[in-house]
Amino acid sequence: MNWAAIRAIYIFEMSRFFRTFLQSLISPVISTSLYFVVFGAAIGSRIDEVNGVSYAAFIVPGLIMLTVMTQAISNASFGIYFPKFIGTIYELLSAPISFFEIVLGYVGAAATKAWFIGIIILITSFFFVRIDIQHPIAMFAFLILTCISFALFGFIIGIWAKNFEQLQLVPLLIVTPLVFLGGSFYSITMLPPFWQAVSMFNPVVYLISGFRWAFFGIEDVPVMTSLFSIGLFSGLCLFAVYWIFKTGWRIRQ
């Protein structure tokens, strides 16, 4: 195992994050505050409680997931796409490093950034609403798993993308709608039966449900199903990454 190389990639990627540390910090704080004002105060004032949890508190897990998923994807996809775009990928391809180690470096850094932002959002939410986290270890585990699996997904997008438009395409057209329709701001049980059934095909529903269970002990789907689905998603992403590096798809001619 080339630990020095993994460390080098990780530090190099994290330095990009720290170069724009203030933007990285302020942006999620502002957007979270806006969500609390719009959803928590304006809309929340018309909704008493959801499954025994105040609406303002209810949206916190969904809010964290929304940002963490998009951040993990964008950081990982940009992280590997940028070397392809500017040509520095030659160094990665000619280094004594396996593809697994490359993934570990890039996905590790992207997941760390997303995790960090998730924690910032959680801290910000404490200023707006009282939250007692019922299963803190499960909450951290779900958060970390989500960061890693979506960073893996982002990595695949970064390899696939041939231009900046494609880099934005999947997050914008697929991920964001899935996250918004995945119960970030509502419980699936609030939907009519038909749309409840449709929602079951949305993988994000399972992630948000599991994460919300860790916070409040309430769930739209059983927590084990949530765990299984995130495990399945991670497994699929890992297999795709393995295949990409095995074949050199869009990396090595």
Binding site: N2, A4, A5, A8, I9, I11, F12, S15, R16, I86
Partner: peptide, 18 residues
């Protein structure tokens, strides 16, 4: 990488090669 410093980019290469 345009925004990286000279020394950091060389450190990166050193690490990448183990």
């Amino acid at each position: 990488e345009p925004f990286e410093t000279v020394i950091n980019t060389v450190k990166f290469s050193q690490g990448l090669f183990g």
